[in-house]
Amino acid sequence: MTVMETNGRAGVVLPDNVLFEAGRAGEGIRKRLLEGFNFHTLLRLPTGIWYSPGVKANVLFFDKRPASRDVQTKALWVYGYRTNIHKTLKTKRLSKGDFDEFVQCYRDRKETERFQKFDYQELAARDKLNLDLFWLKDDSLEDIENIPEPDVLAAEIVENLEAALDQFRSVARELNASQ
């Protein structure tokens, strides 16, 4: 954030805990983003897309404006692409087409089921500026019928482990080649 030029734009991938961490550092980052930058869009990414199982991440989009005493963020638009979306590293990988709806929402700035607007005052009133925002009903938590069969869950675990091993092997090959 400090190296951005005035009127610069950024999209940054950060882990989920940055949005709600109770400590002084997390709250400070959120406050600085909301007040000193135009933090306009948050994309909540699905789990299962990283080599480490269960990692949740987000893409934060913000612009740097000239210094001002006024709060720079008027509203934060959040795209919930995590709830009821199931992706894996091998068989259900993310593709460019998966983001078509997000891109359209980003351009149009109209609320949809997955794209919601939160005014600055609403965000500032949240305890410790918690930005762990969600509104979509998670079907897997409500309906036991939607939980995959044990063999499907086991296959997904194996798939994730194999993908992680493939990535570690690739890193090991690169390290050996550079020596």
Results as ranks from 00 to 15, higher is better:
F61N: 00
S68K: 05
D63W: 05
D139E: 15
A75E: 11
Q72A: 14
K92L: 10
Y106V: 00
R69I: 14
V152Y: 06
V71C: 09
N146E: 12
E5G: 15
Y51V: 10
R30A: 07
R9M: 13
G11A: 14
A177P: 03
I29Y: 10
R65Y: 06
A57G: 07
Q179F: 15
E159S: 07
V3H: 09
G97S: 10
N176P: 02
D63A: 09
V59S: 02
D70P: 07
E35T: 15
D139W: 07
V59Y: 01
R32S: 10
I29K: 09
P148G: 04
R82N: 14
R93I: 00
N38T: 14
N17S: 12
V12Q: 02
F37Y: 13
F102T: 00
E35H: 14
D63F: 05
K96V: 11
E149F: 10
K117W: 01
L161A: 13
A10E: 08
M4I: 06
F20V: 01
K137P: 11
R69S: 15
W77C: 02
P148K: 05
Y81N: 12
L136E: 07
A163I: 10
G28W: 02
G26W: 04
L19Q: 04
N176F: 11
E111H: 04
D138C: 05
S140Q: 11
Y81C: 06
Q179K: 15
I147V: 11
N17P: 08
R82S: 13
K96F: 02
K64E: 08
L43I: 00
G23Q: 05
E101L: 10
T6Y: 02
W77N: 01
A25H: 13
V55C: 06
L60F: 08
G26E: 04
D100A: 13
S178M: 10
